[in-house]
């Protein structure tokens, strides 16, 4: 079986994503971890791009890199010992998180084996973004509204906590 250029790109992007993800946990500097996380997010965005899901790719960059990663970097810069660099890589919770990680892996493997994945690529519609927009206000209107309310509550709550009394 010959490897198509698309597969080569996919493998490279996967290596980038997973490698960066690994470096997030292996890096001894909190700031570097945050930057590796950005690299990992980029890899995921590029994978979406490879699947011609341009809206998801751009949304990934906008939300995960533009907002979440920036916030994480911002928050880590405010923590103590930041400029010193060296951090301990584990703490007293490592046992519990190990168990959770193994359980999650088991779940993912189960899903991977149970679901019959489509192997034929479906044709990508031309204007996916209009379809996504229509789906939001027709078939998925209730989940969409629930998520909106949840975000609003989170926003109000964050302001209430941060407010000076």
């Amino acid at each position: 079986m010959a490897i198509t250029p698309q597969q080569v790109v996919f493998i490279l992007l996967s290596v980038l994503t997973l490698g960066c993800g690994l470096m997030v946990v292996l890096s001894r500097n909190l700031f570097h971890s945050a930057l590796w996380l950005v690299g990992s997010f980029f890899g995921v965005a590029a994978l979406y791009g490879l699947l011609e899901a341009e809206f998801l790719a751009v949304a990934q960059i906008l939300i995960y890199i533009g907002a979440i990663a920036t916030l994480i970097v911002f928050a880590t810069m405010l923590t103590r010992g930041m400029m010193l660099g060296r951090m301990k890589m584990s703490n007293f919770q490592s046992g519990i998180s190990g168990v959770v990680a193994i359980l999650l892996l088991g779940l993912l493997v189960l899903v991977l084996l149970q679901v019959s994945w489509p192997t034929e690529a479906l044709p990508v519609p031309d204007d996916t973004i209009a379809m996504i927009g229509n789906a939001f206000v027709s078939a998925y209107v209730i989940p969409f509204e629930v998520v909106s309310v949840l975000l609003l509550v989170a926003l109000v709550g964050a302001i209430m906590i941060a407010r000076e009394r």
Partner: peptide, 24 residues
């Protein structure tokens, strides 16, 4: 790009990341 404006917003958000890296 069909998502041109969103793309603009997404990548202009990266400017903050570059400046933050430089500053730190």
């Amino acid at each position: 790009l069909n998502v041109g404006l969103l793309y603009f917003v997404a990548f202009s958000g990266l400017a903050a990341m570059g400046a933050l890296m430089a500053g730190w």
